[in-house]
Amino acid sequence: MGSLLSRTMEIQIFNYLQNVILRMMRSLVSRSVEVEISNNTQNITLKNPRIYLECGHCSRFPPPELHPGSTDKCHFPGSSPLWGVAGILVYEAESFTVAIHFSNPIDYNKFPIQLGLELSPGKDHLDRLEDTYDRMANGIYSSSCLDIKFNRVVVGKRHRPVQVSDGPVKVTATMTSAISSFLKVVLEEQEGSGEEAGTDNPCRRRHMLEK
């Protein structure tokens, strides 16, 4: 009887230690992205957030509305220690939609950490989010996207902020290069057009080349 109890305790201790080791391994290799969005405008409300994830999952969902002067966060961890996290978060306002692309891959030797922004008039992002993700992840734009403002960077130890603007709206984003990456997005109001503010618009450049 005593040997049976001893054997049972050994199995329980082994299973416990195995679970602890697995959790530690996951924490060492798994990737995540925490997104903080600050709405620094006076009259614009972001609403109806939508998410598309190529890999990973959402553990803390974005708020349904982000009012002027407010800040909130959402969190996207990898769903497996063998995969990172990659996807887009889209918010809409009355006159535009903004899409945030992020990726934090498991193997930095094969894939870089990426950050991208799209700003488009109306509800352009509200069809197939998978199409928006593919467009942003691959940076492939055609002459049909003249009104879309797009910008992205490969995130390293030092990288410039990503910024897009159109009319009175400017969106700026930065992202840290880390296993648990922090992505900060700021929505602001400004004077002047997006092109005057130096917004990157590869769609317009490509259209001019095609003429």
Rank of each mutant, 00 (worst) to 15 (best):
11 I>E: 12
17 L>V: 06
119 L>M: 09
124 D>R: 06
63 P>K: 02
37 I>Q: 03
130 E>W: 00
153 V>A: 05
105 P>F: 02
125 H>N: 13
97 T>R: 01
193 S>K: 10
191 E>R: 13
16 Y>F: 15
19 N>V: 11
138 N>E: 14
45 T>C: 05
50 R>V: 02
160 R>K: 14
118 E>L: 10
132 T>Q: 01
130 E>K: 07
180 S>W: 04
204 R>V: 10
107 D>A: 06
168 P>S: 10
24 M>L: 15
178 A>H: 11
140 I>Y: 06
112 P>A: 02
148 I>N: 00
119 L>V: 05
186 V>K: 09
109 N>Y: 12
135 R>T: 03
138 N>Q: 13
95 S>G: 02
11 I>M: 13
132 T>G: 01
199 T>F: 04
200 D>T: 13
36 E>T: 13
192 G>P: 02
206 R>F: 14
71 T>R: 14
209 L>P: 00
109 N>E: 09
194 G>H: 10
100 I>E: 02
183 L>V: 06
203 C>D: 07
82 L>A: 12
53 L>T: 04
136 M>R: 01
71 T>S: 15
172 T>V: 08
35 V>G: 06
112 P>S: 06
166 D>L: 09
60 R>I: 05
135 R>H: 03
124 D>S: 10
119 L>Q: 03
102 F>H: 04
49 P>V: 09
203 C>K: 06
171 V>R: 05
107 D>G: 01
143 S>Y: 04
15 N>D: 09
86 A>G: 02
168 P>R: 15
127 D>E: 12
210 E>S: 12
79 S>F: 03
60 R>M: 05
183 L>K: 09
116 G>T: 00
64 P>V: 04
103 S>Q: 14
173 A>D: 07
2 G>T: 11
194 G>D: 08
17 L>E: 13
184 K>S: 13
63 P>Y: 05
174 T>E: 12
27 S>T: 10
91 Y>A: 00
141 Y>H: 14
29 V>D: 05
190 Q>H: 12
106 I>H: 14
44 I>E: 00
122 G>D: 07
100 I>Q: 02
143 S>R: 08
109 N>V: 04
137 A>W: 03
78 G>F: 00
70 S>G: 00
106 I>Q: 15
60 R>W: 07
113 I>N: 03
122 G>E: 06
13 I>C: 03
6 S>R: 14
163 Q>E: 11
172 T>W: 04
31 R>A: 07
41 T>I: 04
